[in-house]
Design a protein around this nucleic acid. Structure first.
Lengths: 276, 276
DNA sequence: GGTGCCAGCTTGTATGAACAAGTGGCCCTC
DNA sequence: GAGGGCCACTTGTTCATACAAGCTGGCACC
């Protein structure tokens, strides 16, 4: 709750955004209401897997909205991978479960809590240093500018499952430095305290062999397989917040992507071993 | 071919559509044209990274289309992760490169060729057998029905980089069985010959240790890390085509996903070691 | 000179209309 | 009975309009 009048509206929006991450509702518009209702109907089996949704005209009559609004609602569900559509044929139910929100994907803690797991975190190292060239490039910062490096270990139900090595941009560092060592969700905390909210993310996923530090922390053998997720997080204005290297113990986490001929969010890239 | 004067202009648009359809590209509609033009402008630096796109009214004036059509175009770019948007502020360029198409993601061969790599494939095993319970579940088939199991090895620039174990649904098997051992792209071939076209996909990505067969084929040590991509492919009608387990040698391939608070296509799931 | 506020710009939501194009089932024919 | 053609239904594309909501920069006031 900021005291400044200017940013009051903004603060309000951010509050709603944060609520969304927690599992609450975002601003209720007509098409979102319809989407939520359809989501519920799909999840509870009113429209079973593989069945066909009512036509757009049916839905627009039932909800007393225009066809355009119905189309926005179903487009939302399609983007979530719940339904598929092709011209001429009624829409088909492809999945029943709702996909995780952006916030849940960006926040390990939120994801774990939503699953009902007991989650713990500990910051092992926290140092301010000059950025390497790669880090500066990723964070879109001046070469040689200062960044905050954080090494963190994460547990699920008492088991160490993930090592996190994050480089925070200089302008974020003060907010992160004042957090306690066992802070469960850094992203949540800096959103609340400093109004630094993640809005976009880019993820690079591959497999690596555990280094000696990884092995010691995760209690696995050296060179055993780890799933690596490097990600870059941006604010709504497109400013880079952090560049992270997360390594999961094999078997603990699976990433899931759904795509279609219409929308292909996943991309395969050549690694260092293959020259493009 | 309508003779009505009223619809003349629109008919013209549609004619363009059909011509482009024959040309190999998917339907060129007005909003797709605009999107492609913007994509090009972004890629070539007319709108540099971080810069702001012209407003919707600018674009609609420039292209002589309604604002709704412009919105469809920019929505397409946003879904590709190229641009971000927030209410009240102009759209921002987030990336310059174009994302791979769905076809390229589903077809290893298409992807490799687009990268300019020399790609080779060899089918090592091809057997018809009854589906396991898991396979039947994934393919949405009767338990105990027949499926086609294919083991394939893939090379990039002469190096073995991927082992592929695919289970094709019974109705697809005949089309796959008649293909040669060194067929480069099975999906392309069955699309052409039997009109079996992939339209949706679901991907599960994690890391595993190389088994002895994996190790022998990929020429790596046993238990060395591999990036595993399991995916399920569907037709436009939602019928399952195949269920695949691809294992890439570490370092050869990286998966990339971009998401935002608006669209979160990527999802993290608990693996077998964590109970949800 | 700095802070606060507002006006104008820009994106988001919603309506209603029209035509194009693909799907699927019915019916008729051979 | 099999095949083809026709037609009603459904989704895709496009237009024009209106108002709501959020952002930005400049102006006025202190």
């Amino acid at each position: 709750m900021s005291g400044r009048t200017v940013t009051e509206e903004r603060t309000c929006t951010q509050r709603i955004l944060r609520m969304d991450g927690r599992g609450g509702r975002v601003g209720a518009t007509r098409y979102r209401e319809i989407a939520e209702s359809l989501r519920h109907a799909i999840r509870t089996g009113t429209y079973p897997l593989g069945s066909r949704l009512p036509s757009e005209s049916d839905l627009s009559a039932r909800w007393e909205v225009s066809r355009g609004t119905v189309r926005q609602a179903v487009a939302l569900l399609a983007s979530e991978g719940l339904i598929g559509s092709r011209q001429g044929a009624r829409r088909v139910v492809l999945r029943q479960e709702r996909r995780q929100s952006f916030q849940q994907l960006n926040s390990f803690a939120q994801w774990a809590q939503a699953m009902g797991c007991e989650v713990a975190s500990r910051i092992l190292t926290r140092t301010v240093r000059t950025a390497t060239d790669e880090e500066a490039g990723r964070l879109d910062a001046e070469p040689g500018s200062e960044v905050l490096y954080v090494l963190r270990l994460r547990w699920l139900d008492g088991e160490p499952v993930m090592v996190e090595r994050t480089v925070y941009a200089g302008w974020v560092a003060p907010a992160v430095l004042e957090l306690p060592e066992d802070c469960v969700s850094i992203m949540d905390s800096i959103a609340e305290r400093a109004d630094i909210v993640a809005h976009y993310g880019e993820h690079l996923i591959d497999a690596v062999a555990a280094g000696s530090e990884d092995a010691r922390l995760l209690r696995v053998r050296r060179a055993s397989p780890l799933l690596r997720q490097r990600h870059l997080t941006y604010t709504a204005a497109g400013r880079a917040i952090e560049w992270t290297d997360d390594r999961y113990r094999a078997g603990s986490v699976v990433f899931n992507v759904m795509n279609s001929a219409g929308a292909a969010p996943l991309e395969r890239r050549a690694g260092p071993d293959v020259r493009g």
